[in-house]
Design a protein around this nucleic acid. Structure first.
Lengths: 159, 159
DNA sequence: TCGCGATAGTTAATGTGTCAACCTGGTTGG
DNA sequence: CCAACCAGGTTGACACATTAACTATCGCGA
């Protein structure tokens, strides 16, 4: 039963600052994407990875690894995107268990229209508000935090 | 038709660093809260605000303003929390339209047990990984970004 | 080559979040 | 005073995310 070390005022402010900034950013960007381009952030990410892949097609498990999504989440989401005609799903020729997800022409049109808008939004609300030093600082901060999270995850897996 | 200013490599890294850090942090903390205390992050936030309020009770619109939640989100969430016995809902005595949300003893027990755990988690994965300077930097970054977001929101409302 | 664990993917149930439509009760200007 | 608007809140329909359970195939070691 050790003493609780609550956050002091500055720690509190830093933590809240991060959380509320992030909430505001993701909400804003998601809204922009939906209204200007008709795709959600998850849609955008799926389409972006498909677009960058050799043939505009990927196995779900590859897509899942790139996005760090669980397989069931991916399955559900791809199902919805398929209904809207953004991607298509076929059985894999070389692995009878598997499938292949391909971007459709309609999906390609949407993402190529959305990408410049999205880049401009990110620049407007984030990049252009900060100094070079602050961007560097964020990279360092992210690295440290991710490292700690990874360590905890490993620890949990092996105990 | 102006030129698209894509993000350069460092800008890209900073943006990705922020996003992936935040995804990792929120996922980790939400999992910790659920497993150790049986409440989700949104549950925790609702209970925390109720706990800090004078009588452990708030009007939904006040709660919504504190959390920056839309009224329908709040209504849905409070409904679920009520089913689980964490809060109760009554009609407001002074405004016949309105309601009052109160924390129950069970809700109070849960949040008071969860809070120290949560503070320790935040310290572990976030605060303790960073320098004083980095925390200060984050406060400044958050302020700038929020300011820009607020400006855009005002602009949208008045056009 | 056979049997079995690992891999690929789907589905059902539930919790969470958004939008639009709606109801009801307050408020205010003519 | 009352009609019209406004504010507080709920509901229904849908999108999104996680967990657990399930099917089917693959591939490897005995």
């Amino acid at each position: 039963m050790t003493e609780v070390r609550w956050l002091d005022d500055e720690e509190q402010r830093a933590w809240r600052s991060l959380i509320t900034m992030q909430d505001g950013l993701t909400e804003f960007l998601d809204r922009e994407l939906r209204h200007r381009s008709g795709v959600s952030t998850p849609d955008y990410e799926v389409l972006a990875h498909l677009l960058e892949s050799p043939e505009g097609r990927l196995r779900p498990f590859e897509l899942g690894r790139l996005l760090r999504w669980e397989k069931s989440r991916l399955s559900q989401h791809v199902g919805r995107m398929q209904k809207r005609g953004l991607v298509s799903r076929d059985r894999c020729a070389t692995d009878q268990r598997g499938a292949v997800v391909s971007i459709t022409p309609r999906g390609r049109d949407l993402i190529t229209a959305a990408a410049p808008q999205h880049a401009a939004s990110v620049r407007d609300v984030f990049i252009d508000q900060l100094t070079k030093a602050e961007l560097k600082s964020l990279i360092a901060i992210g690295d440290k935090v991710r490292k700690r999270l990874a360590a905890l995850e490993n620890q949990a897996r092996t105990e």
